[in-house]
Design a protein around this nucleic acid. Structure first.
Lengths: 115, 115
DNA sequence: TGCGAATGTAACCAAATGGTTATTTAATTA
DNA sequence: TAATTAAATAACCATTTGGTTACATTCGCA
């Protein structure tokens, strides 16, 4: 854990088990047991992965009886998206045209609002 | 280095020095020495970072005399962007509306092409 | 009250990571 | 050819990471 938010988020995402956990949580809340079921690793290993995800804010936990269900919190992914978008021009040849389209989009959106 | 491309890319991006290197390369090719200048870490440390970036395809190297300049290759970032976009709906309330807009966009694009 | 199930903590381990200094390789130039 | 410069490699080190097993905690319920 650094003081660098984005590094921690990337680091949390650099593990396939953790990304699989996020993918499953995208379909709804799950308890640790439910979450662990498809993986062959031990419970404590799952707990550790959840700690990592929670520390960077990618999940939150609640309590119902002896279950502590996990919920996806995608805000940190927004920062990742923002970071990577800065580089879009370097892989997307039609970046400038897409840029034009987005500008167009905004104009249209304003138009909708004023209607 | 795993067999999992996306994990390796995220892992490469999880270091602030490496992201700073990419940011500088976004402005153009640079030699190792030029690249190293703003950082307080040793040359070999930079070389190691470059190896990591090269292994996941985020940079390529060429040779001119005793210099081995680095060049940004953003394709792996495209995969990151694609992965993270899947989660946009979980942070962006207006995702569905945006989705509509993108569909609209495609229609417009077709229209342009047929013009 | 006390058992059982869900989860977390402790202690440990091997491998990977990010850094170092010292040495080597490769290319330019005097 | 010898000296200089750019970069890579080697060998090493401390820390972090992702896993394990054994034990502890917390809660619902018979």
């Amino acid at each position: 854990m650094t003081t660098d938010c984005l590094s921690d988020t990337f680091s949390a995402l650099a593990d396939p088990t953790r990304r699989a956990i996020l993918a499953r949580l995208a379909l709804g809340e799950l308890s640790v047991g439910e979450l662990a079921r498809p993986f062959k690793i031990s419970g404590p290993a799952i707990t550790k992965h959840l700690k990592v995800l929670q520390r960077v804010g990618l999940i939150t936990r609640s309590r119902h009886a002896q279950w502590r269900p996990c919920r996806l919190e995608a805000k940190p992914l927004q920062e990742v998206a923002a970071w990577v978008e800065e580089y879009r021009r370097y892989w997307d040849e039609s970046f400038d045209r897409l840029d034009d389209y987005l500008a167009e989009l905004q104009k249209k959106e304003k138009h909708e609002h004023n209607r």
